[in-house]
Amino acid sequence: MKKLNMCLLSVAVVSAGLAGVGLADDDGDEGRYMRPWGSNARPGVAPVDYPLYRNECGSCHMAYQPGLLPAHSWERLMNGLDDHFGENAELPPGDRKAILGYLLNNAAGRSNYRVSNKFVRNLRGTPMRISELPYFVHEHREIPARLVKGNPKVGSFSNCDACHTGANRGSYNEHQINIPGYGRYDD
């Protein structure tokens, strides 16, 4: 009887959670990317608030917010630091473990932020780059390559803070885009 009650309670909790699923997308593609937290999700992604991560990873590139990749991607990245996109980024074991814990606890789908939740939708496999995620591709599909890859001040889509003026604060609002050498971008 105890197992049956627990099972029924689980079904009720899941059903209640599904009742709060909202369909939304910032540019009008309602329904394409579901927002599981309902209308109370905060905008953007949680900003980086862990100094060890910010100092270690941010010394070579933007300290990407953990909410931009799912947990399994962060785990794979952190377990392969000896060949981190062609570079050796190995860390002392204690630092690696502490940073991995931070990334896993705050990964996409594990926090109540709109952009973070959208990044885990429609995933296949274990993406190693934020720019491989379906939502990222969807949001950047209309940007001409000359403005990013052909722009020496940007260089690639992985250089988020070159164009997204609020990226370091976790804000990827399309109204805060300023492409170096081009200006404000409006699709």
Rank of each mutant, 00 (worst) to 15 (best):
M1L: 14
K2P: 04
K2V: 02
K3T: 06
L9M: 14
S10R: 06
V11H: 12
V13Y: 06
G17M: 13
A19W: 10
V21D: 02
L23C: 09
L23I: 05
D25W: 00
D25S: 05
D26T: 01
D27S: 03
G28K: 09
E30C: 07
E30H: 07
P36E: 03
G38V: 05
G38D: 07
G38E: 01
N40S: 13
G44V: 07
G44N: 02
A46L: 00
V48H: 02
V48I: 00
V48P: 06
D49L: 12
P51S: 04
S59P: 01
C60K: 07
A63V: 01
Y64V: 07
P66E: 08
L68D: 05
L69N: 08
P70M: 01
P70V: 03
W74Y: 00
W74R: 05
N79T: 08
N79L: 04
G80Q: 06
L81K: 01
H84I: 08
F85M: 11
F85C: 03
A89Q: 12
L91M: 12
G94N: 06
D95K: 06
D95W: 04
R96W: 04
R96F: 02
R96V: 05
A98L: 11
L103F: 03
N105V: 01
N106M: 11
N106Q: 05
R110W: 03
S111P: 09
N112E: 09
R114W: 01
R114H: 06
S116V: 10
S116W: 12
K118I: 00
K118H: 07
V120M: 13
N122E: 12
N122H: 15
N122K: 15
L123G: 14
R124M: 14
T126I: 13
M128V: 13
R129A: 15
I130F: 14
E132F: 15
E132Y: 15
E132M: 15
P134K: 15
P134D: 12
Y135V: 12
F136V: 00
E139N: 06
E139C: 00
H140G: 03
E142M: 11
E142H: 12
I143R: 14
P144E: 09
P144V: 04
R146S: 14
V148F: 10
K149M: 12
G150W: 13
N151P: 09
P152F: 15
P152T: 00
V154F: 13
G155F: 04
G155Y: 08
S156I: 01
S158E: 13
N159R: 12
N159V: 15
H164E: 08
H164R: 08
G166P: 09
A167K: 05
R169G: 01
R169N: 03
R169P: 03
Y172N: 01
E174D: 11
H175V: 06
Q176T: 08
I177N: 10
I177W: 14
N178H: 02
I179H: 12
I179W: 09
I179D: 10
G181W: 14
Y182P: 06
G183Y: 00
G183N: 07
G183C: 04
R184Y: 00
R184S: 09
Y185C: 02
D186Q: 07
